[in-house]
Design a protein around this nucleic acid. Structure first.
Length: 350
DNA sequence: TTACATGATTGGTT
DNA sequence: AACCAATCATGTAA
């Protein structure tokens, strides 16, 4: 008979508004709805979610909830609207320097984020409303019961607390899964590596021309990098990356690049048919004494060769001499000394 | 689908 | 900070 109300199994509230989602619906439905926004690899996210969820039951929830809240806030999900844009995209740091077209991907990201935000808030709203209704329902029940048995206000409060606890657990799940989805989305849409695009042909030409006409010292100065970046329509970081990759790959397999090298040196050689007198150094700022450029010369470099193409015909025993032994009497601080940037053949000696 | 090319990232070194 | 070397992840041609 007067059975005290048990820690109620969440029953549907009596007067559920038509618009509200069914309260008894499993939260995984909500997860699915949110996750459907991002099209793939969400099984993984969900799996992670599940495992986190298990931990969650052991861990003190408050700290975790705080973390979730702050993350959702940082990602611009918690905030109802606007500023989500800046908050979301603003935190996106692409260390290597982003190509200038990433705003497109960012807008894609923001669009999806906005969808997530909408669903998140509408679900949150539903839960809150359901929670209120259910609390009212239970309170009413207790009041009815109080006619047949004494119901202390303490008991009332306790029941309300229990209900709120249950609902906040559900909300926590919602927050957790939203976080997961946002992270997945971020990594998919904002990770620069995933968006790699090959440079335009023109950019590659610009870079190659410089590289092969400065084989002795393929280390463009900051100014030169900027110039190359401007000409190729890419960023300075991309220029640096490109030269880093190029040097290492050229060094590793000089033979593979012979054809390319010949092509570019011929190209530039036509521009500087005559060089002669100045033996216009390629060996600016030599890092290691006795050798020219970053790729050590094996034999002290007493021979003065100025034909770049010879390099390709005669890879050094060590396999890492990029450049024919070009002697430099005048050593420049870095590449691209006076008037160099732009005219990549200024120190080509052929 | 696979193999190779290539831009970006990372960790270590100088 | 710049660079190297290894590696990752994507683009592309066969």
């Amino acid at each position: 008979m007067a059975a005290p109300l048990r820690p109620v199994p969440p029953q549907p509230a009596p007067r559920r508004p038509a618009s509200a989602a069914p309260l008894g619906r499993d939260t995984s439905d909500v997860l699915q709805q949110i996750m459907a926004i991002t099209d793939q690899s969400l099984d993984e996210a969900q799996a992670r979610f599940m495992s986190i969820r298990q931990h969650q039951e052991e861990d003190p929830p408050d700290a975790q909830l705080l973390r979730l809240d702050s993350m959702l806030l940082a990602e611009g999900v918690s905030r109802p609207e606007k500023r989500g844009l800046g908050a979301a995209a603003g935190t996106t740091a692409t260390p290597g320097g982003c190509p200038n077209d990433n705003s497109i991907e960012h807008s894609d990201y923001r669009a999806k984020l906005s969808q997530i935000r909408q669903i998140y808030h509408s679900e949150l709203e539903k839960y809150e409303q359901a929670c209120r209704e259910f609390t009212t329902h239970v309170t009413n029940l207790l009041r009815e019961q109080s006619r047949v048995r004494p119901v202390s206000s303490r008991e009332m409060e306790r029941m309300v607390d229990i209900i709120h606890g249950k609902f906040s657990a559900i909300q926590r799940q919602l927050k957790q899964s939203t976080c997961e989805v946002v992270m997945t989305l971020r990594s998919r849409l904002l990770d620069a590596r995933r968006k790699r695009r090959n440079f335009s042909k023109h950019a590659t030409e610009v870079l190659n021309e410089y590289f092969y006409s400065h084989l002795s010292n393929p280390y463009p100065s900051e100014e030169t990098k900027e110039e190359l970046a401007r000409k190729g329509g890419i960023t300075v970081s991309q220029v640096s990356n490109w030269f880093g990759n190029k040097r290492i790959r050229y060094k590793k397999n000089t033979g593979k690049f012979q054809e390319e090298a010949t092509m570019y040196t011929e190209k530039t050689s036509t521009a500087t048919k005559v060089q002669g007198s100045g033996a216009q150094t390629s060996c600016q700022s030599t890092p290691s004494p006795g050798s020219c450029g970053p790729f050590p010369l094996t034999s002290g470099g007493d021979m003065v060769l100025t034909l770049q193409t010879l390099t390709f015909l005669q890879p050094p025993p060590g396999g890492i001499c990029l450049q024919p032994l070009v002697y430099s009497t005048t050593s420049h601080p870095t590449s691209s000394p006076s008037g160099d940037p732009g005219s990549f053949n200024s120190d080509v000696s052929n």
